[in-house]
Amino acid sequence: MELITLCYATLVLLTVCTFYLCASFGFLPHDPEDLALDQILAAPLNTEYLLGTDYMGRDVLTRLMLGTEAYFLPGLLAVSLAITLGSILGAMTIFFTRNGKRIINLLNNCLQSMPRLVILFLVIAIFEPEIYLIMLIIGISHIPSVARIVNNRVNVLKEKSFINSAIASGLPIHTIMFKHILWFNCRGILAAQASLIMTEAILMETSLSYLGFGVQEPASSWGNMIQAGANYMLQGEIWSSTIPAIAVMLVLSALYLLTHLFINKLDKQ
């Protein structure tokens, strides 16, 4: 069972990486800007277009490969931002446990009483609907939750007088913070948290595409592919949005399985 899920997850994620590499080196089955206006919304599995064409007659597979960049890179930005800053903030609480915990909890409560889309709406209304800005905000808004998790772990470690003994043994403080706390004790939960944030960022980008604030064409992203295709769905032309939607689902489920596998492994250790 574990082997199957591992294979499945790596396969999916490797495919995405291959797509990304292909797109960045220009190995594409079709010209992404070539419009076949006489072959609009062709069904998949025909001889010329493996996954069919979209509403402008562009090849869906090509755009799927090309879309990996705009779809996943902003999410990765959000994740890396949230994880680095969040874990540093969390680890810093070894110095001021009590108040640190309070502040982090307060920030967390603030963010929990505000839907993330609402924050984004505010930012869009006041600034501009720019995808990297949006992902920056998603990243920042996750910092407190990451910090809280690290902080909880720090508290547990403190109770075990792990930290005090480390300090007593003369280790420099940054070694304790980064190596002993974050790396030895938090990597599992941090990885799980990263995949959660990634999932949310991806779904958020897709939702924003539907609302018209996502990545804009002609740049392709899986989100705006689903959105554009959905316009034709009710007329029975379901493929051009279903294919990217399934792709999203596959990637997210792979992430989910991988994380669970990881957590289980760590639990057993």
Partner: peptide, 21 residues
């Protein structure tokens, strides 16, 4: 301009870009 309810505008500008390319 982004107009969510007017997809045909998007199509026209994409096609225009394509013709000039």
């Amino acid at each position: 301009p982004i107009e969510k309810n007017n997809e045909s505008n998007k199509k026209i500008v994409l096609a225009y870009k394509n013709y000039l390319n």
